[in-house]
Amino acid sequence: MARERRSTGSRRLSGNLRVENLSYGYRGGFRLSIEHLEFADGVTCLLGPNGAGKSTFIRLVTTAVLPRDGSVFVGATDVRLNLREYRRQLGYLPQRFGMVNNYRVREMLEYAAWMKGVAKKDRPAAIERVAEQCDVTRFLSHRVSALSGGTLRRVGIAQAIVNSPRVIVLDEPTAGLDIVQQGQLYDVVRGLARSAVVVISTHSSSDVAEMGDAVVVFHNGATVFSGSVDSLATGESTSRRESLEEGYRAVIGASGQVR
């Protein structure tokens, strides 16, 4: 009875992911400050040079660290005040994501589901669902150590969404993947974005062009651009990807501190 209550007791968060007056600094002097930023359903790509604050932002949004000032909201829900609830509905694929090599993929997903508080009775179905979504069904009985890089990434995304999250954060999901694998991953992410807020940190203009609905550009601990992908792709090139890169360079250049 108690278990039943637990499994059904969590309410589904709704609304956009929003940050207000967010601020977080390190002892070294770097400080991320964001006055207002909002992420709707769909894929929002975070761009910016190394050290711009993307990773810090992701750590804050995923609650790996909590902000000293400001807040993160989902709809009207303050994440800090509903930490557990928010984490139940968060999917996260870190940049350097490793798995326990002895595990099989199914066990890995089982573990992730347990970690994310998915009710025991719901886990098998959830695993089958995400395995199909991420096209890893045929790998369920494989050991993690035997997977290729692309499959490993897809398993990584599968573990991130096994709890049907409202907010999905993927940190450089296509790093190290070949073209075919990237294409497969784009399909997966686009499918997820239909009913969730997907935030992707990336250095790849292809990622933005293929998956992105919106873009946020970070520079020196602040956002210097926030808008649709089309509004960033203002370059004169006929290629969408190159046009995006021109727009990105223009934004960074306009901030006066190109590195």
Binding site: A64, E85, R87, Y92, R96, F97, V100, N101, M115, K116
Partner: peptide
């Protein structure tokens, strides 16, 4: 081993927390 595997980065933001694991 979980720390070394990198999965701990996911554990940190999971509702069950590292403590439960």
């Amino acid at each position: 081993r979980f720390q070394r595997s990198g999965i701990s980065r996911v554990d940190v933001v999971a509702p069950r927390s590292e403590f439960a694991r």
